[in-house]
Amino acid sequence: MTGDGGPLFCGIELGARIERVETELIATASAATQARLGEAAGFALPIAGGIASFAEDDSPLNKVAGLGFAGVPDTDEFEELERQFAARKSAVQVELANLADPVIGELLTERGYRLVNFENVLGLALDGTPEVIEPDGVRVRPSADSEFDVWLDIAVEGFAHPDAEGVPSHEEFPRDILDRAMRDITAASGVQRYVAVHEGQVAGSASLRISQGVAQLTGAATLPAHRRHGIQSALLSTRLGIAAAAGCDIAVITTQPGSKSQQNAQRRGFSLLYTRAILVKG
């Protein structure tokens, strides 16, 4: 991995590390949902280095992630996870990196999976001290436990209203499901919470997860009344500084292709590392 002031290159080794970190996030959050609802409510099956997760009905945690970097699943493994999803009347959604073993894509196609969308993974090398951006009247700080609900409301609102630009997402989630999923993600997966305060009011929220030297930027949102004051830039630069100080060598963010989020990340120096194909079997 090298940036050298230019676009960051992502080989298979780096892609595998990022996908392992993503698998960790899904596995720990799904386990938190099971602890909340009881083990009968869902499952998390390891499969070829990845994870097949069902948390609860309509959850964004219902997916297969991380495949393609630790062998090829056999037919029995595919059949078992498909049975588990079918028993819960849920489609199977696989997020497959284009750096993964191509044989897996071929096997999924043979099993009737359909390509429905893509998402992009972008990265920034943290090989120095990132510039901290502090617009006038804006302060970023860790979110206190006492204001968790405020942080969560802003985060869920941002997730529920994605970019209008670029390729539209194929997914929509009920707000109460998003609320519970975000609670489970932050409770169990080591996510750090931050808020941006503008003119004395909490105006934005963001999150960060660190694992294996990878800083996952797991979401950021700004309340409409406080937009165009540099809050997103402040939240991003603060998290990058914290990640660099913690010893991370790369920060990653996931966006819809052609979205405003992707444009903003690339303006900040992020490079497109790889794309995940979203394949679904009903």
Rank of each mutant, 00 (worst) to 15 (best):
G6M: 09
L8T: 08
F9T: 11
R17W: 01
L25V: 02
A27L: 07
T28A: 13
A29F: 01
T33E: 00
G38K: 04
A41F: 01
A41L: 03
F43E: 03
P46D: 12
I47N: 05
I47E: 06
G49Y: 11
I51Q: 13
I51H: 01
A55S: 12
A55H: 05
A55K: 00
D57E: 13
D58C: 07
A65W: 06
L67N: 06
G71V: 04
D74P: 04
E77N: 01
F78A: 01
E80L: 15
R83H: 12
A86N: 02
A87L: 14
R88K: 15
Q93F: 03
V94E: 08
E95P: 02
V103A: 14
I104Q: 02
G105M: 08
G105Y: 04
L107R: 12
N117Q: 13
F118E: 10
V121Y: 05
V121A: 04
L126T: 09
D127G: 12
T129I: 13
P130Y: 13
D136V: 10
R139E: 14
R141V: 15
F148H: 11
V150T: 15
W151C: 07
I154R: 03
F159M: 11
H161R: 14
E165V: 12
E165I: 06
S169Q: 09
R175Q: 11
D179V: 08
R180C: 04
M182W: 11
M182Y: 10
R183L: 04
R183D: 03
R183S: 01
T186H: 12
Y194K: 05
E199V: 06
Q201W: 03
S207E: 04
S207W: 00
I210M: 14
S211C: 02
G213K: 05
V214L: 09
L217Q: 06
L217A: 02
T218G: 06
T222Y: 04
H226W: 10
H229M: 13
I231S: 09
I231Y: 07
S233N: 13
A234E: 08
L235C: 08
S237D: 08
R239T: 02
G241I: 06
I242C: 01
A244T: 11
A246M: 12
I250V: 15
I253P: 01
T254S: 12
T255D: 12
G258Y: 05
S259C: 13
Q262I: 03
A265Q: 02
Q266S: 06
G269K: 07
G269T: 11
G282D: 15
G282E: 14
